[in-house]
Write a protein that binds this DNA or RNA. Structure first.
Length: 355
DNA sequence: TCTGGGGTCCTAGGACCC
DNA sequence: TCTGGGGTCCTAGGACCC
């Protein structure tokens, strides 16, 4: 049997900010877009627990957060700070894990089956991890321990902030049954709503549906996920390193725009930043996708696949602008994005026939 | 309430090849 | 003249995660 641990840093961005700015402590702190006195654009990235008392939550429009908590401290995210802090923490976690899967800046899965061997030792490891992160980084985390990633993640979420929750094989059913379906990784607002319309709200409800029923309603992949998740089954491995599938940048304008120069200049800028990352990763891409969001929030993507992989900035700029010209409607644009994918590691040599 | 920006994965139709 | 099926690639859209 496996022993899987999920470590989740508590209110990570906000906690990093509090650490760097002790004057923020004890006050509601919101990391995200500039509220601009209630007219700003964007959302809350993270807030501390003080701000949560006002009802502020992650992904909430910043204007709404501002109404709920006008006297809060609002700061822009400082990603270099979070990235550096996260990298040091992942280094700590790596020492304790047979296998480590980084699942974002603020969370990771650890396979500790071999090194722990039992839930008792796994708990001791979790305590050591918490202690080391607190001493070295002045940050707290929540830990879930179980037999797979699905339940470990649900467990880490169970006693936040700062808790350690263990769910053994025998306890899985009682642990998941009362939880809402939304706690399943992969179930978002749409699937939750659809299930609700079917009279399904908790995992216990979900477990009553047959596999056939679920696959008919939700398709092969999601149907299977729901069927297994409702039974606490998750065979997925802790994966050490994931390959990069796509690289891109997008930008929401301060004000919706139909100024073509502004849009084209933005494509240039986004392309340049995208290529910077592409060069760092030493990859060559074949497919270019642009994303357009209109003022009424309708969003479209358009892509073109090249004959030969490239990492060339001019090619990206030209193709991105071609795609824009070909597809853009006569409406104000809210967001524009550029993304590249379909990677290979080498620039494919031109065919010998060309000689 | 009016919805960021970085991504991943899945679906489905059509083209094209064998 | 009409009709196969499988596999792969491309394109567009959508749900979801942190």
């Amino acid at each position: 049997m496996r022993i899987i641990m999920h470590v989740d840093l508590d209110a990570f961005y906000a906690s990093c900010e509090e650490r760097e700015h002790p004057e923020y402590k004890g006050k509601p702190l919101i990391v995200g877009a500039d509220p601009k006195g209630g007219t700003g654009r964007g959302v809350v990235a993270t807030c501390n627990y003080e701000a949560r008392k006002y009802g502020v939550r992650s992904a909430m429009p910043i204007t709404r957060a501002y109404k709920l908590c006008p006297n809060g401290i609002y700061v822009r995210p400082n990603f270099p700070l979070y990235e550096e802090t996260s990298a040091r923490i992942m280094k700590i976690l790596r020492k304790y894990a047979d296998k480590l899967e980084i699942a974002g800046l603020d969370e990771a899965y650890l396979d500790v089956s071999r090194s722990a061997g039992s839930f008792k030792i796994a708990k001791e490891i979790a305590e050591k991890i918490k202690k080391e992160i607190l001493e070295k980084e002045k940050l707290t985390c929540s830990v879930g321990i179980s037999v797979n990633k699905l339940i470990a993640k649900m467990a880490s979420d169970f006693q936040k902030p700062g808790g350690i929750t263990i769910v053994t094989e025998n306890e899985i059913k009682d642990f998941i049954n009362p939880l809402g379906v939304r706690k399943i990784l992969g179930v978002g607002p749409k699937t939750e709503q659809k299930l609700k319309e079917m009279g399904i709200e908790t995992i216990k409800d979900l477990a009553k549906l047959s596999k056939k029923q679920l696959i008919e309603e939700f398709g092969n992949s999601m149907g299977d996920l729901l069927y297994k998740s409702a039974r606490g089954i998750d065979e997925s491995e802790v994966i050490e390193e994931q390959e990069i599938k796509s690289i891109g940048r997008e930008y929401t304008f301060e004000k919706d725009t139909d100024n073509i120069d502004e849009i084209l200049n933005t494509i240039d800028k986004l392309s340049e930043e995208t290529i910077e990352d592409v060069l760092k990763s030493k990859l060559f891409f074949k497919t270019i996708t642009i994303k357009l969001r209109y003022h009424y929030f309708e969003t479209h993507t358009f892509s073109k696949t090249l004959d030969i992989p490239t990492n060339d900035l001019e090619t990206l700029k030209i193709v991105a602008k071609e795609l824009l010209r070909k597809h853009i409607k006569d409406e104000k644009i809210r967001l524009i994005g550029v993304r590249v994918h379909n990677f290979s590691e080498k620039e494919v040599q031109k065919s010998l026939k060309m000689i």
